[in-house]
Simulated assay, not measured.
Amino acid sequence: MKVLVTGHLGYIGSVLAPMLLERGHEVTGLDSDIFRACTFVGALANTPTIEKDIRDIEPEDVAGFDAVIHLAGLSNDPLGDYRPHLTEEINCNASVRLARIAKAAGVQRFLYASSCSNYGAAADCFLAEDASFNPVTPYGVSKANVEHAVSPMADETFSPTFLRASTAYGLSPRIRFDLVVNNLTAWAYTTGLVYLKSDGSPWRPIVHVEDIALAYITVLEADRELVHDEAFNVGLTTENYQIREIAALVQAIVPGSRVEFAPDAGPDKRCYRVDCSYIGRRLHGFKPQWTARRGIEQLYNTFQAASLTLEDFEGERFKRIAHVQKLIRDGELDGDLRRRPMLAMAV
């Protein structure tokens, strides 16, 4: 298929794009690439790229594609909380506009990167796809609102699918260190402390970034009637953990590490357990390969090989919010997180 991947240079996109190419798909990326200085290990896929902000997409950008995989957006709660009106503008309004443009242009498939953060604060039970949304952050609200707006667009010519990923982890060329498994493993390797900033009680479903990419490929290649206007929790039901359980796994794998709580550690209002059985029943090609233990081992071995330091992952290069703030200070981004035209041309 001819596929446009927005956000192909991000954490998930830089893993998904080469996997799509390996499957024989024709891939074009669209990304403003504000994290171009943040490659950790490995190389990015060599794909045609439209360097553009998703807020500026025009019909000619999507014309001729069989499918759009829409990953682009502000990717975490600190960025979402930084300027909430931009989270609504970029994650919600621009996403809905993209879906409308794609439909008008004759794009048949629209795969949207939703999130299990839609469920937000929930009771201590497993949530299937028919559970009520209760997002507690601007990021979660934006994801839920896009689902509500795009689902009614589904018809015989336009088929959206909503992939509600569990909390991602694992190695990527554009790694994110704010994600809980990646973060705890990085702290343990660089300092010897599995450093918890909450009390460790909240539940969180987790899924390896390669398994998220596999879910997109499985949905893309599935028969239309299996995925039309469907939502899927992405992950394994067995991979729901309390944060303190993840910390214990990290301690067991990283030699000489120990768990320590931040002085102000308290309960996290984001707490949910997710039932991921539906995607496996519906799409037999989706068979996740990773567990938390294997993922932590992968991260630990890579951090060793790369000689990761605390300053690396907590500093301005790899910490998303700190990097964005640096780009604003340096004049490379304006206050609306757009690249300044003259500097963008000079890069």
Rank of each mutant, 00 (worst) to 15 (best):
M1I: 09
M1N: 08
K2W: 04
H8S: 14
H8P: 00
H8G: 02
L9K: 13
Y11T: 00
G13A: 08
M19V: 04
E22C: 07
H25T: 11
V27C: 08
T28V: 14
D33T: 10
F35Y: 14
T39I: 15
T39M: 10
L44R: 06
T47C: 08
P48H: 10
P48E: 06
D53V: 03
R55P: 07
D56G: 08
E58Y: 02
G64D: 11
D66E: 14
V68C: 04
H70T: 12
G73R: 04
L74Y: 04
N76C: 13
D77A: 13
P78S: 12
D81V: 01
D81A: 11
L86G: 07
E89Y: 09
C92Q: 12
S95R: 01
L98R: 04
A102I: 02
A102Q: 04
A105T: 06
Q108Y: 11
A113D: 02
S115V: 09
D124S: 14
L127C: 15
A128N: 15
D130T: 14
A131I: 12
S132R: 10
F133Y: 15
P135K: 10
P138C: 08
G140Y: 03
E147D: 09
P152K: 05
M153V: 05
D155I: 08
P160S: 08
S166Q: 03
G170W: 07
L179I: 10
V180R: 00
N182G: 07
N183E: 12
Y189S: 03
L193P: 00
V194N: 08
S201F: 10
S201M: 12
P202R: 01
R204C: 05
V207F: 06
E210Y: 05
D211L: 10
I212G: 00
A215K: 02
Y216K: 01
V219L: 02
E221N: 09
R224L: 11
E225P: 00
E225I: 00
V227A: 05
H228D: 09
D229E: 07
F232K: 01
F232M: 06
N233F: 01
N233V: 06
N233E: 03
T237H: 03
T237C: 11
Q242M: 14
E245Q: 15
A247T: 01
V250I: 13
A252S: 14
A252F: 02
A252C: 01
G256N: 10
G256V: 08
S257W: 10
A265P: 09
D268Y: 13
D268R: 13
K269D: 12
C276G: 06
G280K: 12
G280C: 10
H284W: 02
A292I: 13
A292S: 11
A292R: 00
G295A: 05
E297G: 04
L299R: 00
A305L: 11
L308G: 04
T309M: 06
D312V: 07
D312K: 04
E314K: 12
G315P: 13
R317P: 09
F318H: 09
F318T: 11
A322C: 13
A322F: 14
H323Q: 15
V324L: 14
R329A: 15
R329N: 12
L337H: 07
L343I: 15
A346K: 10
V347F: 05
